[in-house]
Design a protein around this nucleic acid. Structure first.
Lengths: 130, 130
DNA sequence: ATATCATCTGAGCGTATGTTCATATGTTGA
DNA sequence: TCAACATATGAACATACGCTCAGATGATAT
């Protein structure tokens, strides 16, 4: 399907390089997830790749919270939180139940907790601020 | 520091709600990482929250590759890949060595591999396309 | 029903982001 | 040195994003 215009190179004798190249390319192509999985993983990472949402999710990883409390924790307006919660809802990362006037949110997917603790673990180790 | 304007509510008798609320808030505040760690984690997730970069990183998780091969794998121009590689370099997520004219890139941080496999694992389980 | 509170939503706005294009830099071989 | 190739970079452009603001929706209590 993908035609490499540089399959034949004028490298003369450097067969090793070419072979290694082709082998690596094959491995690499196989390593890239199919579109569906790639998109889902990208959405996951993208959801966590924002200060406000990361704060929201980090908080919800420990306890369920209503919108106004999430706004306090995240340090933004309740409207801003609501918008971000909709995004997280659409990705099925959070759910909520109504409690009186409140909407109490909690994590809907364990993988978020996993990714979060994994990332924070690595950050705490050696990948500090630099 | 943070003054809650709604510390005193006109909820009359619903003390339980108030107490739960305050307790949850305290837990939540403690759960949110300090700025430095938060920023680093956010950068990490943000780096992976893009199709092109995710393809690049997924490929590099298996083998080192030069720029032009990464362009093939990611399905974008070599210039676009170069820009994204600079971003990943600035976050210390990838490094490269020169091999002749080529710049051979590889992952610089194990945590990327971890996060990637963790996310893809979860995706493969039940968090499919939906 | 009305008032109040909590949340949600769409529009608008400024900024950030990813790509392309043209060009610069750097490396190799003639 | 020069030509060819691989990569890097800056400017420009279109799009995506996150926030604010105003107003809508929904729930509770009077």
């Amino acid at each position: 399907m993908n035609i490499r215009s540089d399959d034949i190179r004028d490298d003369d004798g450097l067969c090793e390089v070419i072979e290694h190249d082709e082998a690596a390319l094959a491995v690499a192509r196989a390593a890239v997830p199919a579109d569906g999985h790639l998109k889902r993983a990208r959405d996951l990472f993208d959801a966590l790749g924002d200060d406000t949402r990361l704060r929201i999710v980090a908080a919800l990883a420990r306890t369920e919270l209503c919108v106004c409390d999430l706004a306090q924790v995240a340090g933004v307006s309740e409207s801003a939180v609501s918008h971000q919660l909709r995004l997280l809802r659409n990705l099925d990362l959070v759910t909520f139940r109504r409690q009186g006037k409140r909407a109490v949110y909690r994590l809907a997917d364990e993988c978020v907790r996993d990714l979060l603790s994994s990332a924070l673990g690595h950050v705490a180790e050696g990948g500090g601020v630099r």
